[in-house]
């Protein structure tokens, strides 16, 4: 049975556009606020939600997400908050996945983690630091579940490896646009398109580009060649700068709407 995430990419393909995926760590800045933010993102036009599991040592994240994760952890966010927010996001109508470093998943028990994702109606899990060499157990445990395993590939991933990693992905392939950590950049690296073109040689799975996308113009540009556009730090920064009052949430919705327009007008 296809996951809601897979169905989304069928739909956006038929509409000749890219999907917009928004990221937020669970429990940021509080669990209650996180729910309102996710709703505003979806209300504005975000197609799918990526719930981050806030982790103490996020080596792939830049300053914005690091600070958000620290805040969420100090507010007590853990597995329970991740699954709760996931459930809420799904019931609000968006296909949703969880992004988690491997340590929290392993500590929770990876098989149990996958079951909990499934039970919450989640479509899959993005594992940014689980290398393909360490993923056998995870693949076996999730083989008979209707959840997508999503791995990240990078501009430095050589062709042989690209073929191996992407063959293990379902739902979408997470293409890191640049060599670096998460966070807004003034422009999207040319490496993003080169990477997407290389992936197409090996895989028909949809490709979503993340890292460094924060504006409508950038979303438009990426939507020209990718199937999905992932935006995280830009949403979090709005909350860090404006709080979660009416004006903060309004700005979240506005950014989502503007990015949604971008992913519809790229082609």
């Amino acid at each position: 049975m296809p996951t809601p995430l897979e169905e989304l990419f069928v739909k956006t393909k038929s509409e000749n556009r890219a999907a917009l995926i928004g990221y937020l760590p669970a429990g940021f800045p509080t669990q209650k606020d996180a729910k309102s933010i996710v709703k505003s993102m979806i209300d504005g036009g975000v197609d799918a939600i990526e719930i981050g599991y806030p982790y103490s040592d996020p080596v792939m994240d830049g300053a914005v997400i690091q600070a958000a994760s620290e805040q969420a952890i100090s507010n007590g966010a853990g597995a329970e908050e991740v699954f709760e927010l996931l459930k809420m996001s799904v019931s609000y109508g968006a296909p949703s996945v969880v992004m988690s470093y491997w340590s929290p998943i392993e500590k929770y028990g990876s098989a149990k983690f996958a079951s909990s994702i499934s039970a919450a109606g989640g479509s899959g899990v993005i594992t940014p630091d689980l290398t393909i060499e360490e993923s056998n157990q995870w693949a076996n445990e999730t083989a008979n579940m209707s959840i997508n395993r999503i791995y990240v590939v990078a501009p430095s991933t050589v062709d042989d490896r690209l073929s191996k990693v992407t063959s293990q992905c379902s739902g979408f392939i997470y293409a890191a646009s640049l060599m670096g950590v998460t966070g807004a950049r003034s422009s999207v690296s040319i490496n993003a398109k080169l990477l997407v073109d290389r992936i197409r040689k090996f895989s028909d799975t949809p490709i979503a580009v993340g890292l460094g996308v924060s504006t409508k113009e950038q979303a438009m540009e990426v939507a020209k060649y990718a199937d999905g556009v992932i935006v995280g730090s830009a949403f979090i920064k709005i909350i860090q700068e404006n709080g979660t009052g009416r004006s903060g949430l309004k700005k979240i919705k506005y950014l989502a709407a503007s990015l949604a327009e971008g992913v519809r007008n790229g082609r």
């Binding site: 340590s103 630091d129 060499e133 590939v153 990078a154 430095s156 991933t157 670096g180």
Partner: peptide
């Protein structure tokens, strides 16, 4: 792959593999 029994290995962003 640098395993010592169940320990070791590589748990890093893909960008570092090369």
């Amino acid at each position: 792959l640098g395993h010592f029994g169940p320990y070791g290995g590589r748990f890093v962003p893909e960008a570092l593999i090369a």
